[in-house]
Write a protein that binds this DNA or RNA. Sequence first.
DNA 1: CCGTATCCGCTGGGATACTG
DNA 2: CAGTATCCCAGCGGATACGG
Lengths: 116, 116
Amino acid sequence: MTERTYTPATAASGVQAALRLLDGRWKLEILFHLFDGKVQRFSTLERLIPGISQKMLAQQLRQLEADGLIVRTVYNQVPPKVEYHLTGWGQALCPALDALLTWAERKDAPPSAPDA
Amino acid sequence: MTERTYTPATAASGVQAALRLLDGRWKLEILFHLFDGKVQRFSTLERLIPGISQKMLAQQLRQLEADGLIVRTVYNQVPPKVEYHLTGWGQALCPALDALLTWAERKDAPPSAPDA
DNA sequence: CCGTATCCGCTGGGATACTG
DNA sequence: CAGTATCCCAGCGGATACGG
């Protein structure tokens, strides 16, 4: 039962901390390719995400892993095989992103009675 | 009844479009000082937000206004007085940020049965 | 197949000074 | 009071090349 009294400053810094985990040109697209239990290999993600370079894919994956959003699984075989999937916490991000998406789509929606 | 079939790519770009509106070192803190119907003057925000410069405050406010999140009201008097408040859409962002905050705080929370 | 190393351009944001 | 104008620099991300 921790305190829930947010000042504007603490609330803002809390949200910013969350957003920092998503900061990076490719992280959201990577995450959306892993939502819903999907498991992807490095090369698969590379194909799924047009325009990404190996450097950026590796970097963003490392950061997501370090932040506890995804899990990296290495299979010691030749040729190498590495798979990525979401942690429970990473998956839990989905509804929050949904909320953001829903909000963004309401930009031009009238308050009520769309048709007459 | 628009389509709701999101591919990972479209969902990601939608969320990124939303996040772009919040991008900027100070925007979240500004927003949190305006949530819940609060109306603030330029100089008040300057006091409320430690470390912000006039340049950054003005810039972030302009962008938030251009993006339709806040409204700028100028009173033609001496000395000048300018007030800022959220649009309905801007206020509607609050629950989405709440979702993000809640998610971030669950990082170290056990799945269930916190105590024994 | 799955990365790392290096170089480099661009932009976000800080410091500072000035104005209607 | 409420801004603009200018200069400057750190860091993100793209391009390219190389390694286990």
